[in-house]
Structure formats: C-alpha cells, structure tokens
Design a protein around this nucleic acid. Structure first.
Lengths: 185, 185
DNA sequence: GTCTATATGGAGATAGAC
DNA sequence: GTCTATCTCCATATAGAC
C-alpha cells in the first residue's frame, strides 16, 4: 500500500549521489538533507550512527547492485563472453562514461579508507574474482585469467580518474574499447 | 647562507604529504601546522589565501617534479626506451608501489576538482603527451602511440586505486610489469 | 617571521514537541 | 516519523604582540 512517509531504502539513492559528488567530508548534513528531502531528525532516525552508517548502507547497496548486475552473470552465466560484454556496457552506463565517479574508488584514495576498508576490499575482490572466473570459462589459462581480470578492473578505475581529469568521456570509452579487445576470447 | 627561519619552499614537501594523506578537506590547519612545524600565523604569512593557495603551490611543485624527472626525458631524451623504463621505475618509487596516493588523481575524483581543474588537467595532458612523443620516437604509428600513452597513464592511476583498496603493493607492481611489456619497442 | 589569542561560522549530533 | 531549536565542538581565518 502507498505510504506517505519515507522509507530508509528510499534515501539510499540520493545519499549515494551526494557522497559521490561531495565525498565523505564534503557531504554535510545540510547537503544530505537537501538531497534526501529529510530533516536531521529523520536522518538520525534512519541512521542513528550518522554519516558513517549512511555510507555503510550506501556501500552495501552498491555492492548488492554490482553483485546482481555484474558479478553473478560473470560467475554463473552460461555465456562468459556475453557476461563480459554486458559488464563493459553496464559500467559505461553506470559511471556515465567516467563523468560519474566510483564512490568505492574515491573512498579508497581518501583519508576515510580505513573506516570502510572491508567494504572497499570486498567490492574489488569480488569484482576481480568474478571476472577471473568468466575468463577461465572462456578457456584462458589460470595465470592469464588472473592477470587480465586485475588489469581490467584497474583500467576501469583509472579510466574514471583520467576521464574526469580531462573532462573527456572519450577517454573512458576508448579504455572500454581496449578492454573489449583484450577480454574477448 | 644558513637561515634559521623557514622558507616557503621548505613547507611544500610536508604540505604535499598531509594533503595526500588527508585530502583537501581532511587536512585541517591543525594537522598542517603539525606537519610543517609552523603556527597558523606563519602559514598565513606564506600562504595569505589559506589552504587553497597551499594546494596550488603543492600542485605546481608536483608538476615541476614530474616535468623534470619524467616528462622532459620522455620528450627529449635520445633513448625513448630508456626514458620509458625510467618513467616506470620513477612512478613505482614515487607512488610507493601504490601505497602512496596520487594527489592529483585524488583531487580529480573529489568535490574540489573544479577548484584545481587547470592544474589537474595540465598534469595529465603533459604526461600523456610526453609519453606519446616517446612512443612515436620508438617508431610507433601515430594512432597507436596516442592510444598506448593514454592507456599507460590511466593504468597507473587505476593501479594506485586498486592496490590501495586491496592493500597489496603487488597489484601495482604487476600493473607496471604489464606496462613494461606493452610499452617496449 | 612567528606566536598566542580570538572572531566567526558551520559542522555533526541531540532534545523534545507534535 | 518528522520537525525546529539547540548544544558542543572544531573548522578557517584574522589580529596584534613580540
């Protein structure tokens, strides 16, 4: 049934966006309130531990999205090539050709890394491992699959950094194009 | 002659380190004072416009270091291969195998990007262009040189992100090893 | 040129009415 | 569950003595 009151889960998407845009310290409660349409009282009702809990919730939601949309197909899909193609398409859309930062990557190079170390590590471990499995199913040798998977994930992160630095989505798209070649069977 | 008073240039190295570790907003004047050994009065004497001027000075110093140590040899050295090898060694040392973040890259994925957009862009434009020229001197075709140069620079940035995320210098070192192969004539 | 003391604002967080 | 008012603290920045 329809509810007029907000639900905690409704806040996660705007929360993610505001943390992506302003970072952990830059996202003040005033900005967060504006983004979610909620006052401080409501925010602390949903997240009693404040900003740190908000980010943990957002990271968990992001992890779940990647799990469903990207990792699971890479691990279990019956067509490894198709899952890899789908991954490249999905990240291009998700990161808006590099004009939208990766919150996990941004946290990793910030001073808040240690606070969220487990979530950050998990996100990347799962990504590399899922891609590695797809490459093995493609018929690659163990060592090459490991190496290619790591290379692909770091290339995507680097493409975001460089693409944003140069304010040029083309950088991201060319990087994805190169990966398409390197990762195809 | 020896001087007991600090010079502005003496502050740049500790300033760079504190901004790398804590980010722009995370680096409070208290931390900055501790890192430089200077009080607020002295800091505002050297940098009347405050933190923003400090970061601009640091970025300028970093740009100069890369220019001298990396870009100039890539552009003008008479041995392109040697200059590329030297670049890979230099970044491994400079970024401590990925355990030390790239301040420029970190700023690029933060909310302060726009404030320092020119310096960020310049750093990466110069790097890609210098490497591209070395690859052309290696005998590569124009388009391949451009593509390889962009790929190498973004791979280094991505290697820092992933290496820090996984707390594993090996990630960075393997990425540099891959680049060694891709960039050798 | 360096320091201490201070002004001023905004941060995160809490209290309590509704 | 949501709001406004408020607490407390620490941020940047400034003033002015030495």
């Amino acid at each position: 049934m329809a509810r007029l009151v907000a639900e905690r889960s409704d806040t996660l998407a705007p929360l993610a966006e505001v943390f992506r845009e302003y970072g952990y310290e830059g996202a003040s409660l005033a900005l967060i309130g504006k983004a979610t349409g909620l006052g401080k009282g409501s925010l602390y009702h949903f997240f009693p531990e404040g900003k740190e809990e908000m980010v943990r919730a957002v990271l968990s939601e992001i992890g779940q999205w990647f799990e469903d949309a990207i990792y699971a197909p890479l691990r279990d899909g019956n067509d490894a090539d198709a899952a890899i193609e789908a991954m490249l398409d999905a990240v291009t859309t998700y990161f808006r050709s590099g004009q939208r930062v990766c919150l996990v990557g941004a946290l990793a190079v910030s001073n808040t890394r240690e606070r969220f170390a487990d979530a950050i590590r998990g996100y990347f471990v799962d990504w590399v491992e899922a891609l590695r499995l797809a490459l093995v199913r493609q018929g690659r040798e163990e060592e090459q699959a490991r190496s290619l998977a790591e290379d692909a994930v770091l290339s995507i992160q680097g493409a975001i950094v460089l693409s944003r630095s140069l304010d040029d989505p083309g950088v991201f798209e060319r990087a994805i194009g190169q990966l398409r070649g390197r990762l195809s069977a």
